[in-house]
């Protein structure tokens, strides 16, 4: 019975705190995305061949963990199969956050755009449990800096 109580406490803590954190994170992501849309990121390999562009590798990474409630939900989903909705938002948040950090780095360098953006996703705490738990996303690309303005 004690197990059950501990479980229910963890579950509701995970649900309440996790949901609040997720909503807050999404608000922050959308706000920063709107601001950084002025600095476009492309998945194209060939940049405009202008001689006044200098370039720098920019990266942004983030490790995000799923909360207890969502992990339990995902484990349940594993029994029946189907769309694991609780990991969808985890990965979505991680990808967008990583891209934003990369763009922020590019912005700090005074870049005009980022080219050849690539994502790299890895699950970090594999092994302890069979489920993902936490995920790392790295976004990287080449920032093109217009040297004429300096």
């Amino acid at each position: 019975m004690v197990d059950l109580i501990v479980f229910l406490v963890l579950l509701s803590l995970g649900y309440l705190v996790g949901r609040h954190a997720e909503k807050k994170h999404y608000r922050s992501i959308i706000e920063r995305e709107t601001r950084l849309n002025a600095l476009p990121a492309m998945a194209m390999r060939s940049p405009p061949m202008k001689e006044y562009y200098s370039q720098a590798l920019v990266t942004g990474n983030v490790v995000i963990s799923v909360d207890y409630f969502k992990r339990f939900l995902a484990a349940l989903r594993n029994l029946f199969g189907g769309r694991v909705t609780s990991y969808e938002s985890l990965l979505d948040r991680a990808r967008r956050e990583a891209l934003l950090r990369m763009k922020a780095q590019a912005e700090a360098l005074g870049a005009k755009m980022v080219f050849n953006v690539k994502y790299e996703t890895a699950s970090i705490s594999k092994g302890r449990r069979q489920t993902i738990g936490s995920v790392e996303v790295l976004a990287y690309g080449t920032a093109l800096i217009d040297t004429r303005r300096q």
Partner: peptide, 23 residues
Amino acid sequence: MAGLKNIFGGELKGYTELLQESR
């Protein structure tokens, strides 16, 4: 700390830094 974060969810800053440093 990361184990605790696994209950509440959210960013694992320690691991973010770890990976950044090793990168």
